[in-house]
Amino acid sequence: MADTNEGTTRRDFIHVASATAGALGVACVAWPFIDQMNPAADTLALSTTEFDVSGVEEGMSVTIVWRGKPVFVRHRTEKEINEANAVKLDELPDPQIDSDRTTKPEMLVLLGVCTHLGCVPLGQSSTDPKGEWGGWFCPCHGSHYDTSGRIRKGPAPTNLAVPPYKYISDSVIKIG
């Protein structure tokens, strides 16, 4: 070996250099092996859904599928809209005004996935329990949502999410 000063040697340098090169190599190989678990191209290609809301009559709810998850489309009655608007914001665990949750006030579009642990809340069918606020009720752990899909009582931390959507014509929405 050449000069060996106190502490560090050329060999120490080689050790650090090869360990670094090895770690970089492993990281480069690890990435494809991790990324393969992310959604594949054909899965991503299915990430938007179009839906014609004109067939949803007042007072009626329809469940459609977007990215493998249920989306609730509810044509609300005047009474339900008024109830949603009448609530004081400080009564809400996750305050949000109703008009921020809709594009057209009568057509409520929600991701039908409870924000607690991912069950599908009841309330789409006329015979379902709708919870104490007349919206949706999650039977798994007892979360109550109001007519705007906002959490009112139970373990869920936030309101039912509103998926990204827009009207691409008067009656057709494109989700995603």
Partner: peptide, 13 residues
């Protein structure tokens, strides 16, 4: 074929 075309780095694996 889906592994080859659609899965991320599926062709590589």
């Amino acid at each position: 074929e889906r592994i080859m075309r659609d899965v991320n780095y599926g062709w590589l694996v």
